[in-house]
Design a binder for these strands. Structure first.
Length: 660
RNA sequence: GCGCCCAUAGCUCAGCCGGAUAGAGCAGCGGACUUCUAAUCCGCAGGUCGGAGGUUCGAAUCCUCCUGGGCGUACCA
């Protein structure tokens, strides 16, 4: 079946028409777009104005010339030229009906695989296995999974790789904690919980000593800044206006710095107090004065292949890994590979050696560095103490992926704070000779709390992902139950059904809240908003879907049979037509979502689709339609809408239920 | 200091490789359930698109400057 992408088809037609006017109209084609306003039809073409300038001709005249050459009579009503030279297009109802007829038996709903499949390596989720997953991991996991599904659906070869953090300092902390602080009974009871406690404890003690060492310096810097600020404030204003402005700016910056340092000092003092207020922690801190360096030693021993540490690592890893898998199972997220950092361990020395041999890396202050054009600081690939860094691992990972998968693109779904790291990494990769592969940092913003700061518990801890999901499901259950109880003919769901629905709806709410946001912006995490289950939420879509299925149930409709019926679709009612057209636009939405790897394009499409369906549902009787033909036509529209919603949600990693 | 990102309705955000009167959700106000799920629908109200210049037939969108915020910035990841 040829691809049902109206936009692509129209652009093809415009390409033909424009060739009579210009040699190569390719760059003008993206000016064929969906109409901004329904009054202007379904699609519009705006290139006449641009072209008129190039040709020094009147805009409307150029538009009319284009229209004359344009052959769209089979799919559109006669095009109209409007305003300064817009070309407005309205699709023919019979053409729309025919297209819907064509796609109704297609499980892909008319979305063809791409003509030129590419190989993508998709790097997403990548949590640290030594500690429980928290809210900070949700975006990479959910966005990455969705991109994986979408690219796959489009026929690309996609390799999902979970680049687990299984080899870093965190493990040094756990090793140290295990050797000094473990509680054998807890350990036997729940390995992961105990490891998590040990990690927190060791981390706290390390921080404590570090802060104690650095605090005096920090405080004196703070005092110094205040002094400078006072001096600056005492300076008499300059007569020169420009100078005055500069002074004011300096003052503002200083104030900002002072405020920043005040917060820093306060945070440091708070951390000290937390330890000092607890006799137990105090005692441990005193007993382990060199815990910071000791942790690094444990890490180094692990990396050096020390049998004891390596043995413990092998003991701990499966349990940690299993703990994380619980989350992936709940989120329905999968990977093709999980080559963690440890996998690349043995390749790191070679990466550095090769770069040095080729003269690309140089030693500076004892560290092996890559000095890259356009960056102030170098990319350090080996520390002065000999240890490797994540830049080294990342380079080794690129080597491995290039050799193993020969990808056309590698996508890193990682938060925006690592922007500079990836710019350097990509520059380094090009330096090494990987020039053709498309390296993309698919970055995303931070999950914020209601206060606009990174989402934390009231106590200031990061929020565990598991409890987050539990809470969403709990709230979803309350809403599902309330809605079912309020049904006109009484409740129709038993406890098991309610629990299942709450599970699907709750997880969907979390995922959708994340995906519907433009990935590059920060977003505020708000249970009430996403589980309020109204407006632009997964639930609204799921509810729409359930209503389509409910109609089939009530009318005892055999949907499979319905799809094969060779009866014409009727698009007489405006809501019927709008819904039909919307269904046909699925492929446009998917194609656009992939351009910049933005699932929120798809959520936007689904929201529109659900709205179109609701409008249709409100205004058109389906089961009690005036005629049998109309009833069948509307049933088929319900089916198409349901299919579009289900398929779209599936590409976001969100499931549907038949009843809600 | 340098670099990156951001500023759109009361709130949360779309729109940002230029297009017609700037959109949605929530909150507010007013309507619609003897009718396929009212988790819905319809209507009203709500905006100097942070500010100032510039480019253009046309700017929320591109360029410059300014203001305010976030993040990053040589041996953490």
């Amino acid at each position: 079946m040829p691809c049902m992408n109206i936009l692509v088809e129209l652009r093809l037609r415009f390409h033909q028409a424009l060739r009579t006017v210009v040699d190569d109209p390719t760059d003008l084609l993206d000016q064929v777009v969906p109409a901004q306003d329904p009054r202007f039809g379904d699609y519009q073409a705006n290139m006449a104005m641009t072209l008129a300038n190039r040709l020094s001709q009147p805009q409307r005249k150029v538009a009319e010339q284009i229209v004359q050459n344009l052959q769209v009579a089979d799919l559109c009503d006669p095009p109209e030229v409007a305003g300064p030279g817009f070309i407005n297009l309205r699709l023919r109802d019979d053409w729309l009906a025919a297209q819907l007829q064509r796609i109704s038996t297609d499980p892909r709903l008319g979305v063809s695989p791409v003509d030129d499949p590419a190989t993508f390596v998709l790097d997403y989720s990548s949590p640290n296995v030594a500690k429980p997953m928290h809210v900070g991991h949700i975006r990479s996991t959910v966005i990455g999974d969705s991109l994986y599904r979408i690219l796959r659906f489009l026929g690309h070869r996609v390799i999902g790789d979970n680049h687990l953090g299984d080899w870093g300092t965190q493990f040094g902390m756990i090793l140290y904690g295990y050797k000094h602080f473990r509680d054998p009974s807890q350990f036997a009871q729940s390995l992961v919980k105990e490891l998590s406690r040990l990690y927190k404890l060791v981390n706290q003690l390390v921080e404590y000593h570090q802060i104690r060492q650095e605090l005096p310096e920090l405080q004196s810097q703070f005092a110094q800044r205040i002094e400078v600020l006072d001096q600056q404030q005492a300076v008499a204003p300059s007569a020169d206006g420009a100078e005055q402005k500069r002074a004011a700016k300096r003052l503002r910056n200083l104030k900002k710095q002072v405020a920043e340092m005040r917060d820093k000092v306060a945070a440091a003092e708070k951390k000290l107090a937390e330890v000092e207020e607890s006799p137990e922690l105090c005692r441990l801190a005193e007993q382990h004065p060199n815990i910071g360096s000791a942790v690094l030693e444990e890490t180094a021993r692990l990396h050096a292949g020390d049998p004891e540490n390596l043995g413990l690592w092998h003991d701990f890893l499966p349990a940690c890994r299993q703990e994380i898998q619980k989350i992936y199972d709940r989120l329905d997220v999968r990977f093709d590979y999980e080559y963690g950092e440890s996998f690349y361990q043995e390749r790191l020395a070679e990466v550095v050696a090769r770069l040095r041999q080729r003269g690309l890396a140089t030693v500076s202050d004892g560290a092996v560095c890559l000095f890259l054009d356009g960056f102030d600081a170098p990319m350090i690939i080996q520390k002065s103490d000999g240890a490797y860094l994540y830049a080294t691992t990342d380079l080794a990972t690129i080597d491995f992926r290039m050799q193993t998968f020969q990808p056309d693109a590698i996508l890193y779904v990682v938060d925006h704070r690592q922007h500079e790291h990836f710019q350097k990494l990509f520059a380094a990769a090009r330096l090494v000779g990987y020039e053709r592969v498309d390296l993309q940092h698919v970055s995303f913003g931070t999950v914020l709390g209601n206060d606009g700061k990174p989402y934390k518990t009231r106590a200031g801890d990061t929020v565990g992902l598991e409890s987050l999901l539990d809470e969403a499901v709990r709230r979803a259950h309350a809403v599902v139950a309330a809605n079912d109880d309020a049904k006109p003919d009484g409740p129709e769901l038993d406890d098991d059904q309610r629990r299942h629905i709450a599970d699907v709806v709750g997880h969907a709410a979390i995922k959708y809240a994340d995906l519907c946001q433009n990935r590059t912006s920060d977003y505020k995490f708000d249970y009430d908003k996403m589980v309020a289950l109204e407006g632009n939420t997964a639930t609204y879509m799921q509810y729409s879907y359930a209503r389509t299925q409910s109609i089939f149930g009530k009318g005892q409709i055999d949907v499979q049979r319905l799809r094969t019926l060779d009866s014409p679709l009727c698009l007489q009612h405006p809501t019927e037509r709008a819904l039909g057209l919307q269904v046909l636009r699925l492929s446009e939405a998917i194609a656009e979502a992939v351009v910049d790897y933005r699932p929120n394009i798809l959520t936007g499409y689904l929201f529109d689709t659900a709205k179109r369906f609701s409008e249709f549902y409100q205004q058109c009787q389906v089961l009690k339609a005036e005629s049998e033909a109309l009833r069948t036509s509307r049933l088929r529209l319900c089916d198409l809408a349901g299919q579009a919603i289900r398929l779209g949600l599936e590409l976001l990693g969100i499931r549907v239920v038949e009843k809600m």
